[in-house]
Amino acid sequence: MSTENFTSRIVKALNSWEGFLLLVLVLLFVGNTINSPFFFTLNNQINLFQLSIEKVIVAVIMTFVIINAEIDLSVASIMGFAACLFGWLFQSGVSASGAVVIVLAAGAILGAFNAFWIAWVGIPSLVVTLATMIAFRGFARVLVEDRGITGFPDWFDKLGQAPLVGPIPLSILVFFVLVFFFYIVLQRTVFGRQVYFIGSNRDVAEYSGINVRGVQAIIFTLSGLISALAGLLFAARLGAVRGDAALGFELDIITIVLLGGVSIFGGRGTMVGTLLAILIVLNLRNGMALANITGHIQTGVLGILLILSVMVPNIQEWIKKLRKLGKGTVE
């Protein structure tokens, strides 16, 4: 390979959205390390993941949903419902391990319920999941009313809080296993290609004989299941549940996925992009916290980041168009 070829490949890679994200991530990492002596410590790196682990786990499956040109606003309500259902079952005398199984099944059922209205009845996912976002949150609040439930068995709390393998707790392992698994599914399987195809043009996909309903049913059911898993991890990490568990998380999750370069119109985006966006958001938040920046400013910075993530690809498009126009006049 000639050096010219090599540099042009690097330039091309940096020109891609993932390349840009990687650059941002490296800058953040260096900036944070210079800014605080506590940033680049094992303990802090684990905390940084642990504090948002439930959101980033759901972001993995949300990547599928949005590439499929759909949206799932009900994820955080399913997380909250799962946490509350666990607390309620446990308080009603069901063993914690039994409750875990029931909660996961319930999550899959709620996801399948979304899928039914979206894939078979044909109501837009924005509407369906907006309605279920409110309804599932309502179920959660009914279950635990206005109190908190706590006092779970030690093994359950430990799974959420204590290291499992070396210094790494269960939730972080779950996250990386899911990222790897869904990376393979999305980028290396027929199912993954179908997800993109449906997202680019649903009608054409249907005429081409793709089982659109089946694919969507799988995605939304998985979304419910994984949200329930995240809800359980949330309950274990905090050792207590309340009706407002995971309230408002859906917007953070969708923000991460869009920042990762997944198009809100579907058909575009990668798992690598989502992973990079996750790392950027976590590092940014942690860096700001270590720099003692208050919550209001943190929220503002994340908002600006999202605006940029939507604008930058558009600007890239304009530049391409301008170049084409320029060429046209020369010819």
Partner: peptide, 17 residues
């Protein structure tokens, strides 16, 4: 809006610091 998660985050970060 982020009071619970935010308090936990600040508690954890303060310990890291």
């Amino acid at each position: 809006e982020n009071s619970v998660a935010g308090q936990i985050e600040i508690m954890t970060t303060s310990a890291s610091q």
